[in-house]
């Protein structure tokens, strides 16, 4: 299998302010968010990062998308280093996270064209891609409605469409179904499966076991910034389900506490 993403020894720390120290009930001035994380993702698979809140999933995805820099380690994304070729990495990926918002003043039509232009897509290619994605997500009926007036689900679908306007090889989604109703969640998960069928690589973070079981070929379980295990679902779960297996691993790591 072709490795399309290889992360090696990724480490990220954040300085804690006095207020954050109080919130974290810690006197440490530095928080290690990701601690020497290594994993690989293969072309055409859906790879899931699984872990509790604060485990380091989002920080890992933000490093892979070059939104933040790694303190140590590197990742090669579609042949490009996140440290030395961030521009080329951004060209190869589509990234979606809840902290990325679309300007509410503009219409889906305008925003799609805008982001496609930034990715260097020709107007002909952009028009064809927009037609496909807008029809797929049902955005075409709202193409000229300002984002501010769209429903939460429609905004999320538009965010997905915009993030992959340039037809990237690797799609990185952070908690893609968070806050969505069941119908929109299904549309999103079905779309991720379709992307896999098209040969795209999807890397997603989630804490929803059923979603991971439904979508992922392989998962990596992160606890306290460390990759505890990374394997196929079958190998990790063996004769049990993912949720049970996750808590076994978690209790072992945390010394029996949940």
């Amino acid at each position: 299998m072709e490795v399309i993403l290889k992360a090696t020894g990724l480490r990220k720390t954040f300085a804690l302010s006095k207020k954050q120290q109080r919130l974290e009930k810690s006197d440490k001035k530095i928080k290690v968010a990701v601690d020497g994380l290594s994993f690989e993702a293969y072309k055409g698979e859906i790879f899931g990062l699984l872990g509790p809140n604060g485990a380091g999933k989002t920080t890992t995805l933000r490093m892979l998308s070059t939104l933040i820099k790694a303190d140590e380690g590197d990742a090669i994304v579609n042949g490009h280093s996140i440290n030395t070729e961030p521009d080329k990495v951004r060209q190869s990926i589509g990234f979606l996270t809840s902290e990325l918002k679309l300007e509410e003043f503009f219409t889906p039509n305008y925003l799609f064209d805008f982001f496609a232009t930034l990715h260097g897509i020709s107007s002909t290619e952009c028009a064809a891609r927009k037609k496909t994605l807008f029809e797929r997500f049902g955005i075409d009926k709202f193409a000229e409605v300002k984002v501010a007036n769209l429903s939460t689900g429609m905004k999320q679908k538009l965010s997905i469409a915009v993030s992959i306007a340039h037809d990237p090889e690797i799609i990185i989604f952070d908690e893609p179904t968070n806050g969505l109703d069941v119908i929109t969640s299904k549309v999103v998960t079905d779309f991720l499966i379709d992307l896999k069928r098209e040969g795209k690589t999807v890397i997603l973070s989630t804490h929803i076991f059923s979603l991971a079981e439904k979508l992922c070929d392989r998962v990596g379980i992160i606890i306290n910034g460390k990759m505890i295990t990374c394997d196929t679902l079958q190998n990790i779960c063996a004769d049990t389900d993912l949720e049970t297996r996750f808590f076994e691993i978690y209790e072992k790591e945390m010394g029996g506490q949940v």
Partner: peptide, 17 residues
Amino acid sequence: GEKERGTIAALLVTPLK
């Protein structure tokens, strides 16, 4: 304003220099 609303992050993950 863009920073506050989180819309600038969407620009920063594009290849835009």
